[in-house]
């Protein structure tokens, strides 16, 4: 199940005190710090357009807001996303059947009931095989 059935859900809150303590330390450090005078963006400039310039290394030619070039990072992230999608499909694919369509339709639940489903399917097929000749015989007999 996707719910925690172990009965100890939420009982281990003690490690969470470390997170609370970390927040207290960080809050004290942040409140006591100073960051100088803010430098805002220039008036009338499109931030979104300049993000696009920075993403494709065009800020030197077209941009007026300071930034760095991210073309290499953009391509690396694109490859990383492709790898992630392939990895997710590889992990989600069943070893026995390997059908992505079956995974999308049943959400991956079928494999847990494989033994029962196989037994039921076998029994159903067997009953159909035994029923079919009888019905044929009945039909032929009636003729």
């Amino acid at each position: 199940m996707t719910t925690d059935e172990t009965g100890n859900s939420g009982s281990s809150l003690v490690p969470g005190l470390a997170a609370v303590a970390l927040f207290v330390v960080m809050a004290v450090a942040i409140v006591q710090s100073s960051f100088g005078t803010a430098v805002a963006f220039p008036e009338g400039e499109s931030i979104v357009a300049h993000i696009g310039y920075a993403m494709f290394d065009l800020q030197g030619d077209m941009g007026t807001i300071a930034s760095e070039g991210f073309l290499a990072a953009f391509l690396i992230i694109a490859i990383g996303l492709d790898v992630a999608v392939d990895g997710a499909l590889f992990l989600a694919k069943r070893e026995e059947e390997g059908s992505i369509v079956a995974l999308l339709t049943d959400g991956g639940r079928e494999l847990l009931d494989t033994a029962e489903a196989t037994t039921a399917a076998t029994a159903e097929e067997a009953s159909m095989e035994t029923d079919t000749p009888d019905s044929t015989d009945t039909t032929e007999g009636s003729r």
Binding site: I65, A66, S67
Partner: peptide
């Protein structure tokens, strides 16, 4: 705060 777009671009990544 610093008027530099590097942070916003990196946030997209």
């Amino acid at each position: 705060f610093w008027g530099n777009l590097t942070g916003q671009t990196f946030a997209l990544f």
